[in-house]
Nucleic acid binder design. Structure first.
Lengths: 336, 336
DNA sequence: TTTGCTAATGAATACGTTTTCATAAATTAA
DNA sequence: TTAATTTATGAAAACGTATTCATTAGCAAA
């Protein structure tokens, strides 16, 4: 017995193909009696529509694609779970494509296997591809780069504001001498975080000291070394607080401070960024800044669907982060 | 400008549609000169084949679907990464569908959006669905249930053997009085692990003591309580070792032993199952049994592809596990 | 020369569906 | 009653591709 098609249903029900199609797709032109009859016959025959035929004819797949280089780690699975749930809610399916091959991404998108794409691909799609997508009016939302045109937008974390808020928080604790431990200066986020830090200092009219910006390269060990040499070089100007470019860097910093006899947070406050898993288990538990990953997923899906429905043009959504106050920060004590 | 199709390429190249199709799909009937000419024109026009047309006509998608209820946690992302890589190698794409809706699974599979399916769905697909798939000769591999017919197979972990081996290892350390901390007795894995434990005892002719099987329910706290009450009830028969149904249970067990003044592993050995992330960071680091997740992914994909190619019939592949010896187990000391 | 064969190409069909448009029947308006 | 409108249905086209089969041209063998 071969695969049952809409034709077989039509024959069995004694109606035309179009009638079956209308019944199945709930197009409101049929008499209730024929409609229910057709549906009953379809069920009896265990009819399942061929999606390729459907999609070819209608030009729609009711599928959104998430294109990513990896799904490993909490960031990705939190993201994917939230997107998946949001797709469900909006009547779409979510399809995860894991690939580093630009070609694969393009042929799936331009080949219309999905109605729209969420793209996280670490900057491997070049201008040429973008303009090809633009020409075809492909609907897409980028998670790791800023892009905005008629049919394409972005949802990114605003590291600048996050850093500004983090610095503001440290200032609110009474800290004035705040050292910023920079990450990798070629990375967008790293630069944004440094700028946010500087902006907060300016806003609260605290002096900006070039010596108070050191390089930690987002790593524990290099930060450890950087902090130690900082303390050696400037034994006179011990800071009130350190703002590290990420959590690993914060940990390296705290280790270094310990070896110099400083207690965190009583003597010096330290905070990081990202709220990695270790953050809450570390001693002291890290005060840090957490990205709202689920929110990113939800916004991306919603934006994409609105692009598809042409209810919206491409926009750059910037997400604010969340301050996570734990044990590594403390009000400044002026006891001595 | 509208979407470019194979027709446009044919017109631009001054050849027929079939010639373009043959050129693009590398069918070896064309003269080299026309072939390269067609490919050049296609490239110039930025032609990208419509996958829905392709798939409808050919009946193939070159896509495998992974159907799962979740992607959260190390098990899933290790699995997905390994499957994805293996798909690449075999010339397939992998598509991850996250859903709890049996309907969605069936319509995607029976609607031929994929050439084959890897299914992890916690037993929600019933016999009716299975037989529908069987009738259509759908190619599928299950990861969480045993199933075997002409076009469908399984790749599962052999918990029985794993537990047997774990017990054997404890015996090899000189332990004779081994307590098994059972999980949830309605779960397949839980039962298998208990049976493996019993089989090892029998094989090495150690006495089987009903009191030495206690309930921990796969949880830290309930195990903690269970072990404490065990020690209270049987102060006379202190065991040499505990084999816990999973790592969380092992941790609960060690905590309880600590409060009773026993040192792990010097006084008593404890081991778990699963090798969760915490296992290696715990004090003492847990001796445990690790499933070879990547292997499961690789085998599943390979089996599925061979089913599709009709080079193989459905089989149940059982994977052996890997003993991870860390600090929570130790040779039995008969000092006193 | 004629015949037969091979190599290269194109015309036409089919895949399974949605959708447009025409038609027939039923209802309402005149 | 007839004309006009609405309602329900079906015939046929279209989506973009792969594939079968026929056709043509070129060439070697007889």
């Amino acid at each position: 017995m071969t695969k049952i098609t809409i034709k077989d249903v039509a024959r069995a029900a004694g109606v035309s193909i179009s009638t079956v199609s209308n019944a199945l797709n709930d197009v409101d032109v049929l008499s209730p009696v024929t409609k229910s009859h057709v549906l009953k016959v379809a069920k009896q025959l265990n009819y399942v529509p061929n999606l390729n035929g459907k999609q070819l004819r209608s030009g729609k797949t009711k599928m959104l694609g998430f294109f990513t280089t990896s799904v490993s780690g909490p960031y990705f699975y939190k993201l994917v779970e939230s997107m998946s749930r949001e797709c469900d809610r909006l009547g779409y399916g979510l399809n995860v494509f894991i690939t580093k091959d630009r070609q694969v991404i393009m042929s799936n998108i331009l080949g219309r296997r999905v109605d729209g794409a969420i793209i996280y691909e670490e900057l491997r799609i070049d201008e040429e591809d973008i303009s090809a997508m633009q020409q075809e009016k492909i609907k897409a939302v980028f998670l790791d780069r800023v892009l905005q045109n008629e049919t394409m937008g972005s949802v990114i974390f605003d590291s600048y504001v996050a850093s500004y808020e983090a610095t503001k928080y440290l200032i609110s604790l009474g800290h004035k001498k705040i050292v910023y431990i920079s990450g990798v200066d070629t990375m967008f986020d790293s630069v944004e975080r440094k700028e946010g830090y500087l902006a907060a200092l300016r806003h609260y009219q605290l002096p900006i000291n070039e010596d108070y910006i050191i390089q930690g390269y987002f790593e524990e060990e290099s930060t450890y070394n950087a902090v130690k040499s900082f303390l050696h070089l400037h034994p006179d100007k011990v800071p009130d607080a350190f703002l590290a470019g990420n959590d690993l860097s914060a940990i390296g910093c705290i280790q270094a401070l310990k070896t110099h006899g400083y207690e965190v947070p009583l003597d010096i406050s330290v905070m990081g960024f990202d709220d990695i898993d270790i953050a809450q288990y570390y001693t002291p538990p890290l005060t840090t800044v957490r990205n709202q990953i689920a929110k990113q997923g939800i916004q991306a899906i919603n934006h994409l669907v609105r692009l598809i429905q042409k209810k919206e043009q491409g926009t750059v959504h910037k997400l604010t982060s969340e301050l996570v106050v734990r044990g590594s920060s403390h009000v400044k004590i002026y006891s001595k």
